[in-house]
């Protein structure tokens, strides 16, 4: 399971990229605009714009495989999570608000790096009517902060 600090990190307005693959093992990739973690620290729900993620959603529906990378641009800290049971679920109350907060928090992290706010917000722009949720159970966790130790498996907390 994820520890409290890791949960804070992935829910804190970081950049999120999600991948799956089709039956021929061709990868698909898209961006997510928010994330929430259940109280058990294992169930992770990603918020995506369905219009930007059609192939990925098709692939997840088919195989359930999912990899997601979380990165904070200002620190380069990066975590990758994987799951084998990903599926589309209903939005929960407050998910649109959660995504909006995420987009704003990401933009604020980017500003000191020299990006203009409209650009920073646009990178995670989403269409409210197209917001959807993918939920998976955490199976593997990797530290992917750039460096020779990138890719190291992190031991799940007992």
């Amino acid at each position: 399971m994820l520890d409290a600090e890791q949960i804070d990190f992935i829910q804190s307005g970081v950049s999120i990229a999600v991948a799956s693959r089709d039956v021929r093992l061709v990868p698909s990739v898209s961006k997510a605009v928010g994330c929430r973690v259940a109280a058990d620290g294992r169930q992770v729900t990603l918020l995506l714009d369905a219009g930007q993620s059609q192939q990925l959603l098709r692939d997840v529906a088919e195989c359930g495989e999912l990899a997601v990378v979380f990165c904070r641009p200002s620190s380069h800290r990066t975590l990758q999570l994987k799951g084998h049971d990903a599926c589309l679920v209903e939005l929960a109350p407050g998910d649109v608000e959660r995504a909006s907060v995420h987009v704003q928090a990401f933009a604020e992290d980017l500003l000191p790096l020299g990006y203009a706010e409209p650009f920073a917000r646009a990178t995670h722009g989403f269409c409210t009517e197209q917001l959807c949720a993918l939920r998976f159970t955490l199976s593997d966790l990797f530290d992917q902060t750039p460096g020779p130790r990138a890719g190291q498996r992190l031991e799940p907390q007992a």
Partner: peptide, 17 residues
């Protein structure tokens, strides 16, 4: 940064920036 997705022979996807 760009996101790069790949997949291993067992069908487990991977994504990196």
């Amino acid at each position: 940064p760009a996101a790069v997705a790949t997949c291993d022979a067992q069908g487990i996807p991977n994504v990196t920036l």
